[in-house]
Structures are given as C-alpha cells and as structure tokens.
Amino acid sequence: MAKRIDLKDVDIYYGAFHAVQNVNLTVTPRSVTAFIGPSGCGKSTVLRTLNRMHEEIAGARVDGEILLDGENIYDRNTDAVAVRRTIGMVFQMPNPFPTMSVRDNVVAGLKLQGVRDRKKLDEVCEASLRAANLWKEVKDRLDKPGGGLSGGQQQRLCIARAIAVEPDVLLMDEPCSALDPISTLAIEDLIADLKTEYTIVIVTHNMQQAARVSDQTGFFNLEATGKPGHLVEIDDTEKIFSNPTQQATEDYISGRFG
C-alpha cells in the first residue's frame, strides 16, 4: 500500500517565474510529513507536483525527478491520470461534487473509473466513511446532497472520497484552514488513524498542527518575494521544533520571523 516518495533536484516554474528551487527530500511510507513555511514560499506548489496536479496550470513546468517507490512519475510512459489514482489529494476548501449525494460523492472516483458492482460500491462507501470518522454522522443521509453537510463534515467527506480509490499516498493542502477548531481536531485525529495505512504529506500554516500530527517536518522559506522558495531543512518533527539545525527555522518556529 503505502509508498515512499523521493524528490531529487526538483525545480518548479510557472512560465518564466522560478517558484521553487532545488528541493531534495524523502517521504517514508506510513508516516506523516508536514510542510511549513511562510505563505508564498511554494509549499502548495511542491505538493501539487507530487501528483502532477501542477500540470493543470498553464505554463507550469517541473525539472528534476520525483520518484514513487523508485519509479519516476514524470516518466513519459507514465500517465498523469494513473499517477493521481495512486496519489490522492485533499484541498483547502471542502468541495463535494454539488450534483451528487453523500454516497455518490464517496464512490465517485470508483464509479467514474468504471466500477459498476453495486455491492462493492456500497462496501467501499461504508468503509471509507468509517475510515474518515464520518459514518455515524451520515449513515442515515447517504442519499442527501453532499453539499448539505457542515464544513467539517464536508472536508471529511472529501477525505473519504479520496481514500475510496485506495491511493498509496494522500496529499493534503491546508485541509483545516477553512474549518472551526472542533472540526480541525476531528481531522487531526483522522490523520493519526490514516497514517497506519497511508503515506501522508500535509501542508499547514499552523505550526502546532504540524507538531501534533507529523512525524517529519520540512521548513520552506524564501529570501524575498519574487525569489524562488526553497527547502531550508527537513527532519524529525521533534528535532525541528526543539533543536533545528538552521537559524532560519529556529526564527520561524519561535515566531521571530519577519
């Protein structure tokens, strides 16, 4: 299931704009890796290159290698659609498909990949909702529109939707920033559960959250606006938050940052 990710000499561009410079890192299976750093330093950009979502933006380009269990996901024989089946993503804004019921939202990925078996779909639906800690709350309203749930429930629905296609890796881009503290806690608990089966990479602007949920933390920074962002350091979360190697990390963690 869970897979390892290696980034080797990754540079990312938006047209002529060099957004992220020379990132090297490794994400180990069955762990949570958090990306922190000031806004605009390229955390989302790096995350989106991990499942080739990056390619959806005009003029966006990646140099270097991104390996999934040793296999380059940017290899010309590799299909972006297939990459995304293996590497799921949860976005900042909860965004259930508005025309679909709760159930159809959860199994949308499978259904649109051609799975027809009703029994299998129902099983996956229940399993995914249970895994997302949402089953109890929605089991009586599976046929209601997904948009009718609360914000926190919608976000867990999106997580259920993402894990229903059985990815190996789960990417989350500030999944709690649109949520209230209670829903945030629910999602953080969920992340702790999910890491037993998945490789998880999460971007967060909330340092306590990074400290709470992650095993490994990467700190991104940028010299100045207009300059490319870069990975300052990546290490065990405990080490980053107690005894970082770099002064810039120390400054950022302790709030002394600009």
Partner: peptide
C-alpha cells in the same frame, strides 16, 4: 487552470 488534458501532457 490550464485546459490541457492531464493525459495529453506526455
């Protein structure tokens, strides 16, 4: 968002 098909890029 660019409108290139995801599977078109390679």
């Amino acid at each position: 968002i660019d409108q290139r098909a995801p599977s078109e890029t390679d």
